[in-house]
Design a protein around this nucleic acid. Structure first.
Lengths: 116, 116
DNA sequence: CTTATCTACAACCAGATGGTTGTAGATAGG
DNA sequence: CCTATCTACAACCATCTGGTTGTAGATAAG
């Protein structure tokens, strides 16, 4: 199993974070980590506090990190977490493709060793 | 752009569907499409109606399809939609990696024509 | 036909979510 | 020092979400 031992809550938070257009847009903007929270905030038709909350959600899901720079807080995207999400999806495909085969193989292995 | 013209609502529904452990488990189980809604329902500590709602959410997000078989409704995973989700994540990575380069390139192309 | 099973859907409820405003602490600049 | 800016966080509110129960339609089985 490629992505093991990620508890449900973590995965929930990861995908839930991605399920909001404002947060996806924040992610697109902050790949290089040059934008402060207030710079991000002016991009959206909502209050600073609302954007701050979105950033907090992303941070909790580890999709971004924040780095203090004077009185600003620079937001940077965390590529590893995006990859984790991608791997979770791939794993699903693998389960779909291999479920039955794998069960048969395991049952076979018990008496025959590897097949083919 | 690999994944174009997917409106926000669609993407929201896609990731939101994935942000629930019951629904992720349903997806894992129904890759081959052999399971009816009621067969799925007995796997979880909740009512039939609750599982039915989860399946409805997955169906609306096009992560599964349903196929009538007599009085049952067989649920089958839709691999293309999983791939769509994966591509959305990859696209994010691409934006992070190439944002600045691409802006420079577009500005350059305006006077130079296509490169390479 | 009658009954049991599978599905669909409405109504309802508690808790989470996404927004608001307001207050307050830190830091930069005049 | 004083002020403006950036951030943090609490309180509040409307809506969405994930669960429940109950009712009803269709199909399979006796």
């Amino acid at each position: 199993m490629v992505v093991d031992r990620l508890i449900d809550e973590t995965v929930d938070g990861l995908f839930r974070s991605l399920a909001d257009p404002t947060r996806r847009d924040i992610l697109r903007r902050c790949g290089r980590g040059q934008l402060s929270v207030s710079q991000l905030a002016v991009c959206y038709p909502m209050s600073f506090a609302a954007v701050q909350k979105h950033v907090a959600v992303l941070e909790k899901a580890e999709l971004v990190t924040k780095e203090r720079k004077g009185r600003e807080q620079l937001v940077r995207g965390k590529v590893e977490t995006i990859r984790t999400a991608g791997r979770l999806l791939e794993e699903l495909e693998v389960v779909w493709r291999g479920r039955i085969d794998r069960i048969e193989q395991i049952l076979g292995d018990e008496k025959r060793g590897s097949r083919k």
